[in-house]
């Protein structure tokens, strides 16, 4: 599998670490309560088809990435920097 890092370009899967659903970007407010945190930490949709995921370019530039990947075909539709996605969303 190949992933196009927005900083480094097309790289081999071995350089990356998979962290799971991009839901982890949206940490609840500290006073949101433990139900909200429980949902944040443990509950995942895991749908077939397109998923938003967090990847870490661990053996590369060390950027955390948000990728849209079709989990049935392994095709990446988009890859962006998590920091920019987070800051842009605000």
């Amino acid at each position: 599998m190949r992933i196009t890092c927005p900083i480094c370009g097309d790289r081999d899967l071995r350089e990356f670490h998979y962290r799971g659903a991009a839901k982890l970007m949206h940490r609840p407010a500290p006073d949101a309560g433990d139900e909200a945190f429980y949902d944040y930490v443990h509950i995942r949709e895991n749908p077939p088809g397109l998923n938003r995921e967090l990847w870490f370019h661990e053996l590369g530039c060390r950027a955390w990435l948000v990728a849209e990947r079709d989990v049935t075909s392994h095709e990446f539709k988009s890859v962006e920097l998590a920091a920019e996605a987070k800051r842009g969303a605000k």
Binding site: C8, R14, L59, G60, C61
Partner: peptide, 9 residues
Amino acid sequence: ARTEVAHMM
């Protein structure tokens, strides 16, 4: 490039 060489960063 920052990459892997023989499994090393």
